[in-house]
Simulated scan of single mutants.
Amino acid sequence: MVHIRLRKWRESDAPVVLRAFQAPDLRRQASWPVVTLQDAVGWISSWPGAGHAFAVTAEGRVVGNVAVSGIDDQGNGWVSYWVVPEARGRGIAVAATRLLARWAFDERGLLRLELRHRTDNPASCRVATKAGFRPQGVEHGRLGDEGVPYAVERHARLATD
């Protein structure tokens, strides 16, 4: 297993963000199209106030993102993650999601973390379950890419898990 670390995003990481969002499966992960270096800088700078996003590093290189956002007054937050295509299959997303959960529970005092993934994305489901997020059910017609609804599976992890 690769040793990974989480750190704050830096403006100098913009080329990695731009390259990541060129992958077909990651294009829909951004709130807006990330097609220029300036878009990538904007993506990085959009996180403060919207949530907590961390660059995932492996062997000193940025290879992904983990974030918790949508934090509410009851101590709930939404988790998201992605790993660049060339770094997948090495357990990086699982390890990063576990680290993020521990940080969210210990440092932010959150009680419950949730995430969703499309049901046609079994790799994301494996990440969620290996990171300790238990399945909570399927929501049909929940997410829409280009107006097309998809079924999503919801997972959750509690601070007491």
Rank of each mutant, 00 (worst) to 15 (best):
R19H: 09
K8L: 02
E153L: 00
R28F: 05
H117C: 04
L99H: 12
G49K: 15
F21D: 09
E146G: 13
N121S: 04
V84R: 04
W78A: 01
K8A: 07
A95W: 00
H3N: 13
C125I: 00
L111S: 04
P48M: 15
R19L: 09
V63T: 15
G137V: 07
W32I: 01
E146T: 14
H117G: 00
P122F: 00
R154D: 00
H140K: 13
G144W: 07
D39A: 14
A87Y: 02
P122I: 00
R126F: 01
V41G: 11
A95Y: 01
V63S: 04
A40C: 06
S12P: 03
R5Q: 15
Q136V: 02
L37K: 11
L143R: 12
R157T: 03
G137P: 03
D106H: 06
E114L: 04
E86R: 09
L18W: 06
W32E: 13
V148G: 04
F54R: 12
V84Q: 03
V127Q: 05
E86W: 03
V16W: 02
V56W: 07
V34T: 05
D106W: 04
A128E: 08
F54T: 05
E107A: 10
Q74H: 11
W9I: 10
E139T: 06
A55Y: 01
G51F: 10
R118W: 13
G91W: 02
L143D: 03
L113M: 04
S45G: 10
F105Y: 14
V62C: 06
R10S: 12
A156F: 01
F133N: 09
T97Y: 13
P33F: 07
E153T: 00
G109N: 07
V79D: 12
S12K: 06
A87M: 09
L6Q: 06
A40M: 10
E59A: 13
Q22Y: 07
R112Q: 10
I44N: 11
W103F: 05
H155W: 06
D73N: 07
L18I: 08
L26H: 02
G91K: 11
E114P: 05
S69W: 15
G144T: 11
N76S: 07
L143Q: 07
W9S: 14
A14M: 08
D13S: 14
R126V: 12
N76W: 12
R134H: 08
A58E: 12
A151Q: 00
G147T: 14
G75E: 05
E139C: 03
G64E: 04
T36M: 09
G144E: 07
V17T: 08
D161F: 07
A96E: 10
A93L: 12
R116M: 04
A58P: 15
E11R: 08
L26N: 05
E153H: 01
A93S: 12
E146H: 08
H140M: 14
R90Q: 15
D39I: 09
S46K: 11
V127S: 08
L100V: 02
V138A: 01
A93Q: 11
V94A: 09
A23F: 07
V84T: 10
P85R: 01
E107W: 05
Q22L: 15
A50L: 14
R157S: 11
H155D: 02
V63R: 02
G64N: 06
T97E: 01
W43Y: 13
A50H: 10
G109M: 08
A96H: 05
G49R: 14
